[in-house]
Amino acid sequence: MDLQNYDKGFLLKLLEQMLLIRRFEEKAGQMYGLRKIGGFCHLYIGQEAIAVGSIAALDLKKDYVLTGYRDHGHALACGMSPKAAMAELFGKATGCSKGKGGSMHFFDTDHHMYGGNGIVGGQIPVAAGVAFKIKYNAENGVVLCYFGDGAIHQGVFHETLNMARIWNLPIVFICENNQYGMGTDFRRVSSVLDFSVMGGSYEIPAKQVDGMKVLEVYTETAEAVKLAREEGTPSFLEMKTYRYRGHSMSDPAKYRTKEELEEYKRMDPILMYKQDLIAAGLLTEDEYKAMDKRCIAVCDEAVRFAEDSPEPPLEAMYEDILA
């Protein structure tokens, strides 16, 4: 990937966004330990290049994003305020879903981020529905739909791919294959190891992408987005990645080896990209440190905001149910 072909500001922004997500997730993990956050909290650490690289290929004035419950990274990459995100984790009224959704249900319709779904695969047809509206209204937008390697065997994935193709819906399906669905190695529950062949069954262009490389994610997504935008052709991208933490906060992740984890940490998306930028003379170690400081400060500020925010009143339980 030749870095000189890209605008420097754009390249640095990708790095800063990944770093922000990393620091946000670390903070969320800490706050969980302090019991400020409860329930399921699925961290995105290790997968940052995917949300950041792919969402960078969108124009969120007309494009949309839908994902599953591991949604913090996508929300931040869409431009959700880290304060609203942290406040949601704290269950506060100022949270992005007014403290009603929690970690799994980040929504920010202003930034065209339409959730945050807790049912494995549940968002897949819904995302195609958003693409359907784009086509129905003859708009120029595209939908990115994210899901995990565990979700790909759900019936709705296959049903939706078929409809997306027969109706030419402007959508890019992105499977974030982090190799595990909870404690299950994807190889144990899939008849194929290369998910991209599944696109072929529905005549949907599909390929595997290295999800640890933010620029590769960006260029491949940009191409798929162009195809969707200009020709209404859906695509399917399998992005190979890894999650560093357990499935959720209570998972000791005994189903994988330490060596495997260490191996992936050596290909850390942030670390590798940072080294590329330094090697290309686009970044210095000091500039990186300053960037990191900024991200940490933003996350600290988000925690303060969440701490100081009010709880929703009890009557709020009856609100936001029917329009």
Partner: peptide, 16 residues
């Protein structure tokens, strides 16, 4: 339970 979907906020969810 109250005739509502469950909110995440703990105080609300207990009161539901």
């Amino acid at each position: 339970s109250e005739d509502v979907p469950m909110p995440y906020n703990h105080r609300l969810e207990l009161e539901v």
